[in-house]
Amino acid sequence: MSLILASINYWVTIILMIGGLYIVVAHGNMVKKLVGLGIFQTSVYLLFLSPGKILGGTAPIISEKFEVYSNPLPHVLILTAIVVGVATIALGMALVVRINEAYGTIEDDEVHEMEQE
């Protein structure tokens, strides 16, 4: 149990990752797939951010009062990654809207059937 608690952040990451992927695989609704994709990406944010946090550390502004700082790099990176993620989801949603206009449905099996014709 303590093993799990000690690395709880990784476990959460893994669960989110698998959960996200599972949604992408299992759900036929295109919006839900995107949601799954979002969850999957979020897991990565956690993967990067959690090792950067140092217990008792503070924001990395150099000051005489503090000696332990958190690593700022992951925050910068993940900020970028979030932007990328938002853009991806936005583009995905736009595509889903267009698919809905073109096919009248966003269930992938129905779309697939229409394409087979």
């Binding site: 992408v24 695989v25 299992a26 759900h27 036929g28 797939k33 992938d108």
Partner: peptide, 17 residues
């Protein structure tokens, strides 16, 4: 079940895994 569906994204992701 939706998993029986053959639409490629599903099977591709499965392949990835």
């Amino acid at each position: 079940g939706v998993l029986a569906r053959t639409w490629p994204t599903g099977s591709m992701v499965l392949w990835v895994a």
